[in-house]
Design a protein around this nucleic acid. Structure first.
Lengths: 302, 302
DNA sequence: ATAATGCATTTGTCCGTGACAAAGAAGTGA
DNA sequence: TCACTTCTTTGTCACGGACAAATGCATTAT
């Protein structure tokens, strides 16, 4: 296992969420990161060091730092800054279960992980299972990856496992009268579906009728679908990776397209930082609150 | 409903699978497509006409035409060429069931569609269900979309429905002794997971132990996962949208990384055009054949 | 003192161009 | 007919410039 990894600029984009153009600009402006070109492989060679730094930078940017302050900085400096951030370097494990689960994942004990989840599932309702266990678990897994405790493939493995579970939960849930018909989708550039699925389980469990359009649905298509299916609501999920500045315009455009009778709910890590929602759009950073809102809404209707 | 649609270049990329850079080059080389810049929307305005042409061009390219012959051509010319293609403009509906299902989808009768699938499901084994119904249905839906008979959102809706179904099928399938442990994933830039899921159901139904890594797994991670989980095989799915030229290099790189004891199987529309597979890689355009191979392999082992 | 406004700077994305390598086509000789 | 070599087409990347949105800072008004 060498301490250098060849990754095409596009591959690096996958890992860090930092675009090709942006990395080029950084290289020009701050002199970092400068990869080495390897002829025989036909690709750029980034050192592990550089990749680590880029990951740290990504997290610091999310934490509010500006690129000019951190992009050229040495690793120690970055880690120091990260530690100074509230909830920065630490993995938030409020519940010991979650730590256990992550340990299992780290040691590739997939079957054991699945069984452990099954046991936890029996202890509570579907809603609690998702809100109090799976959601925190997902963010904890993300943190553990960023901290280098998990490999990406383990995160993927976990996602896949959770998605299968969530799909199971969805079975047999019946829509209740007076509860809205909701279309779930992920906006334009968002590929992460796990959060969306969790939301679907929670709201379906609460009695809503749910239709899923999956990932990367353009606003125009969403509008068509909402009208064709006579939906009462559109639910969107923005992950942490969604470019912040694009959230509001996307929501505004959708609000402009959709008839006023169709509500728009948006959730996920990507909208937590948004202060005031655009008019006619509801933001949720908490699935529990969304479920409450749903019940209120249905109560008014009946 | 206007006859013009605003789509950012990136949005168009979604719809047609044609990258931003490529469209720019085409515009410079062939004078097409030239969108109009709209200041107040801050985006490029592509006419429906242009989008239709681009879709047709996409299909013609898949059919073997070269860009220089078709990129500037008028719509009628393109449709004529498409009709001249074997199985070109037609939707291949070998089985009338599929046509029925598509009709249901076109009229947004999702529940009815689901019930119809359920009825078909009872008639046959899981394996036949996937191979003889779902797989053809998926390609038929793609064709219907390309022909303008379905909107994208309907395709998405169908995908989501099928994925839920397939996940159900997966439940309760037990791995059999002597059958390999397989890791499923989608390579670097591939986001389509439906084909992968179908393959997983077929092979799991045949007795393999399946682990899913989901979409967009870089070769390095795949290697790590394969070694950590002691997998016997890696199964990849390339959709029609995967850039042809990248298939072979990706497979070669993976073959180079993985230990020789780990088999590589690749399938999907994206590999059908590949004539000879790289050494040490098996290509499948047919899930049935893959299942047969699996049984042979297990027979040898036992 | 606080909030609000206007100006300067930072920063991410897109564009047009040129370079280049891989794939395809065409030509050549056995 | 097949293998091999040129020539052409074609997709992707790098580069530098341009630009708009976001941010920071200073000034003013309440």
């Amino acid at each position: 296992m060498g301490n250098e990894r060849i990754i095409g600029a596009t591959g690096l984009e996958q890992e860090t969420g930092l675009g090709k153009d942006l990395l080029r600009k950084w290289r020009a402006r701050y002199g970092f990161p400068i990869p080495e070109y390897v002829r025989e492989q036909g690709g750029w060679l980034y050192t592990d060091q550089q990749i680590t730094q880029l990951r740290l930078i990504r997290r610091l940017l999310d934490g509010g730092f500006r690129p000019g302050q951190i992009v050229g900085a040495p690793t120690e400096h970055l880690t120091a800054l990260l530690a100074s951030l509230p909830c920065g370097g630490e993995i938030c494990c409020e519940r010991p279960v979650i730590e256990e689960l992550i340990e299992l994942l780290a040691s590739n004990a997939i079957e054991a992980l699945d069984e452990r989840l099954e046991r936890e599932r029996r202890k509570c309702s579907a809603r609690e299972f998702v809100i109090d266990l799976l959601a925190p678990l997902t963010t904890a897994v993300g943190d553990a990856w960023a901290a280098g405790k998990l490999a990406i493939y383990q995160e993927h493995l976990c996602s896949s496992l959770l998605m299968a579970r969530l799909n199971e939960e969805l079975r047999g849930l019946q829509a209740q009268p007076n509860y809205p018909r909701i279309i779930f989708a992920t906006p334009g550039e968002e590929t992460h579906v796990l959060g969306l699925l969790m939301a679907r389980v929670v709201l379906a469990d609460s009695g809503a009728e749910c239709l899923d359009l999956g990932a990367q649905v353009p606003a125009e298509e969403l509008n068509q679908a909402a009208q064709a299916c006579r939906a009462d609501m559109v639910a969107l999920s923005f992950s942490f990776a969604y470019p912040r500045r694009k959230v509001r315009p996307e929501l505004l455009r959708l609000r402009h397209l959709l008839p006023a009778s169709v509500a728009i709910w948006a959730g996920g890590k990507g909208v937590e930082a948004i202060r005031r929602p655009p008019a006619g759009v509801s933001l949720f950073s908490d699935l529990g609150r969304a479920a409450e809102m749903l019940h209120e809404l249905a109560g008014v209707r009946s």
